[in-house]
Design a binder for these strands. Structure first.
Length: 316
RNA sequence: CGCGGAGUAGAGCAGUCAGGUAGCUCGUCGGGCUCAUAACCCGAAGGACGGGGGUUCGAAUCCUUCCUCCGCAA
């Protein structure tokens, strides 16, 4: 069974590696073209390409895969595994693999179809998530499911941390799935028509913190946006990236101040108490922040440098 | 040449424009007050001011050059 793997970001590297280490024959990797990265705009190959090259696997980087179907076919694969590839496949591509095209999806179906299942789970305060292996069809993540594992989301887990866990989970699961496909003994489960949901790509606008919301929602936003695109608060024209936060436990004095404070107001100027900000139902403590041009630091350090003062307000 | 910020004590910052003994807050250590404390009071240690070169009687500060870190945008 000859396998072609289509994937792009870090998330896809672990599955690719696991497939390779499990002894499957990977005849080619398809990934996105190199893109300019960072301040200098240096052309950088995607993580999957780097990995594939170190293992000597042929790499294909079509700018538009639908215009290079014959190149894909030339790889001679029986089966295509997709994992966060980043391009929509056409029927011609799907038809190029006798044993089908299978997708590793980092979320439970049908509720979390779409581009941002991991982040969206955290933003929604879900308690569990999972990885699904499904048939890739023309519609958006609507194919029949081959297998799925569900895991709990940890209380303080960030998008980056959960993503890494799911990546390894997906790696294990795809290897199992390939075993099933090879043996030919498997059953497909159509997705329920109830509770279908589509989550779209996350943009920076969604990452702005709204302190008029409940503490739990604010914290979920911060978790779900770490490490990218990163939640941020704005005050006096400056933006402050927020990487981590927790529910504030206030002193009696702070409780008093909080009662009359407006949403987004800084409740204390004592570095030891931390950067406390009023929300709808209490206060949130921003524990890891980064101002533009500065390093990441604790909320206490940020307060100590006096870049924000007690009573200053982050706009909602 | 995409736009911009920053390198000063263990940490976060001021001081740089108008060169002249190195400052603030936090932490650390010692002492005091207190039933007690993350609170308060007193004291101490700790810095070749990112590196090189230049101007000057004298440079954290002015000129020049190199290095490093970071935000935005893509």
């Amino acid at each position: 069974m000859k396998i072609v793997f289509a994937g792009t970001p870090d998330f896809a590297v672990a599955p690719l590696q696991k497939i390779k280490e499990s002894g499957f024959d990977i005849v080619g990797v398809i990934t996105q073209i190199d893109k300019p990265q960072g301040r200098k705009g240096i052309l950088t190959p995607p993580p999957v390409k780097k990995a594939a090259e170190t293992w000597g696997i042929p790499v294909l980087q079509p700018e538009k895969i639908k215009e290079h179907v014959e190149d894909v076919q030339a790889l001679g694969g029986d089966l295509l595994v997709t994992c966060a590839y980043g391009q929509i496949l056409t029927q011609a591509v799907l038809d190029s693999f006798p044993m089908g095209v299978w997708n590793i999806h980092a979320g439970l179906l049908p509720k979390y179809r779409g581009a941002s299942p991991i982040q969206s789970c955290i933003l929604n305060g879900e308690k569990t998530t999972g990885v699904s292996i499904m048939k890739t069809e023309l519609g958006l993540d609507c194919g029949d499911v081959l297998c799925v594992v569900e895991i709990p989301i940890l209380e303080t887990e960030t998008y980056g941390e959960l993503s890494e866990r799911l990546s390894h989970l997906g790696a294990d699961l795809i290897v199992q799935a390939l075993g099933l496909l090879q043996s030919g003994t498997y059953t497909l489960t159509p997705q329920s028509e109830e509770g279908v949901g589509v989550v779209r790509k996350i943009n920076k606008e969604q990452a702005k913190i709204d302190f008029s919301k409940p503490v739990a929602e604010v914290i979920n936003l911060i978790r779900g946006m770490n490490p990218a695109p990163v939640a941020y608060a704005v005050s006096e024209g400056n933006s402050l990236n927020v990487y981590r936060a927790e529910r504030a436990v206030m002193t009696a004095e702070e409780e008093e101040i909080c009662k009359t404070a407006v949403y987004g107001e800084v409740l204390t100027d004592k570095p030891k108490r931390g950067l406390l900000v009023k929300c709808q139902d209490g206060a949130v403590k921003l524990t890891e922040v980064q101002a533009s041009g500065g390093k990441r630091m604790s909320g206490g350090d940020f307060l100590n440098g006096r870049k924000v003062k007690k009573g200053q307000v982050f706009v909602c």
